[in-house]
Amino acid sequence: MPIIELKAVNKWYGDHHVLKDIDLTVDEGEVVVILGPSGSGKSTTIRSINRLEPIQKGEIWVDGVPVHDPKAPINKLRQEVGMVFQLFNLFPHLTALENITLAPIKVKHMSRGEAEQRARELLVTVGIPEKADAYPAQLSGGQQQRVAIARALAMQPKIMLFDEPTSALDPEMIKEVLDVMVALAGKGMTMVVVTHEMGFARNVANRMVFMDDGQIVEVATPAQLFSNPQHERTKQFLNNILKH
C-alpha cells in the first residue's frame, strides 16, 4: 500500500519543463533514494511531495491527501511529513530546544512541558543533549543538521523527506548526520532522500531512483543499480561519481 504516489507529474518554470511525467510510489516503511545530476529535477520532485513546489499537471497523493488539489488540507498534511534541508534552515533567533518545540507547541498545541520533554529525548536520539540551550550560530553544521532532524521528528511525522541533507557539510560531519538517518531508517521510518552519499544508499535504500533532465530514467534496488545499470545515462553518471 503506497503512502506516497506521484502520477504523471509535470512542472514548468516558464518554458522550462522541469518535471516530465514523473511516476513514483513509495510504500510505508520504505527508504527511497533519489539521485541524479544537477538540474535533473530531483530536488523539485521531493519538494513537490509536501507542496513546497506546486505542480501544474498530474496527481500527488500522500497518505490519502490529494496534494495536487489546491483545496487539500496541506498544513495538516505537512505536520505528518517532516522535511530536512540542505542548509538546515534552523530558526536563528531560537535555541536548539526552542527550534524543536516551536511547531509542536504552536501548531499541534502540545503543552510546553510535554514538548520540551520530548525535545530533550530527541536531542539524545540525535546525540547532542548538551546543546539544548545553544543558538544555531553556536553549533557546527553537523550539529545544526541534527537539530533540524530532531525538529522535523518532533511533529511525529509518518514520512521524512531529506533534500541533500549532507551536501553542505564537511566529511567528518557527514557521518554524524548519516548515522542519525540510518538509525531512523532502522526504526521503520518512511524516507525519501535526495543524496549523493552512495554508501548510505547502498546500505539503507530499498530502492534507488535515477533522474536526468526532469525524467525518471531508472528505478532499481541499490544492488542492481550499482552492479548492473540498465541505461547508458545511469552508467555514465555512476561512473562519474564513483570513479575517485
Partner: peptide, 9 residues
Amino acid sequence: EAAQALGMT
C-alpha cells in the same frame, strides 16, 4: 520553507 514544512499557517 522550514516554517511551511512544519505545517505552520
